[in-house]
Amino acid sequence: MTTPTLQQAYATCEDITRTEARNFYWGIRLLTRQRRSALCAVYALARRVDDIGDGDLPVEEKAAQLEIVRKELAALDRSTDPVMVAVADAAHRHPVPLEAFEELLDGVWMDIEGRRYGTFDELTEYCRCVAGSIGRLCLGVFGHKPHPQATRYADALGIALQQTNILRDIREDLRNGRIYLPTEDLDAFGVELRITDGALADPDGGLANLIRHSAARAREWYADGMRLGPLLDRRSGACCLAMAGIYRQLLERIADDPAAVYDKRLSLSGREKLGVAVRALGGRAA
């Protein structure tokens, strides 16, 4: 395969991000040109890994494809794949922690093998792999003022976003044979996840109470992670505020009306996302 030019490689990643990153792209577009390109490269590779996990291939083929990505990461500078070429350049320009992609691969493997989580601590480890890793990759692109907790804040923010995803996608995940809510929480609220007539069943309100409880816990992770904002420059801080703000607003909508996720995949409108982005550019959280 002919090695693409850097311009072609980054253009490929930006096309992927623009098409697939329904929420993240609202924040990414607020970055400076070079950082925007670098974060699109990071997203494009992360998306490739996620798509392997979510695809319809047999488990053995998914495992083989994840291994291919691992090998490509190990030989990044020799790759002719446009996404890998862009990631390699981004990592040369910014302190991108490439080892975080290894954690993402580990997290996606948890999905592939259908792992269940008995406790919230176990779920947190999964979230750290699939989303905290993304937070740390973003931080590498953003850059930040020296602070001993910066990486932890980025990790916490990613974990908060993933908890929001889990609450939004309970029905969709269950239809795909996946349950992320910890067993200890399901038991505590007397919830047996099942779908009746196309919607999540909640005969006694236990699921709604569990969702509200989980949302309150996610708010604590957001509060911790949002300490990252003051450590970033204006444009990177705006990107962070926008990405987190969209998910925080979604979390509050779910907490206000848990039943809204029982029969559909809840999302914000384009106008609402734009509003979050505009406020973020002005330095205001959603």
Rank of each mutant, 00 (worst) to 15 (best):
M1G: 14
T2I: 15
T3S: 12
Y10C: 08
A11Q: 15
A11C: 06
T12S: 09
E14A: 14
D15I: 02
A21N: 06
I28V: 15
I28Y: 14
A38H: 05
A38L: 07
C40S: 15
D56K: 13
P58G: 08
E61T: 10
K62L: 11
E72F: 01
D81R: 04
D81W: 01
A88E: 06
A100H: 00
E102S: 13
G107I: 08
W109S: 13
D111P: 00
Y117E: 05
V130D: 11
G140M: 09
H144K: 02
K145L: 14
P146C: 05
I159G: 01
I159Q: 15
A160K: 00
Q162R: 09
R168E: 01
D173Y: 06
L193H: 11
R194V: 01
R194Y: 00
A199G: 01
A201N: 06
D202V: 04
S214N: 06
R217V: 03
W221T: 04
R227V: 01
G237R: 15
C239M: 12
L241Y: 12
G245C: 04
I246T: 04
L250G: 00
L250A: 00
L250N: 00
I254K: 06
D257Q: 13
A259E: 15
Y262R: 06
D263F: 02
S267H: 13
G270K: 11
R271S: 10
R271L: 14
L274H: 01
G275W: 04
V278A: 13
A286E: 04
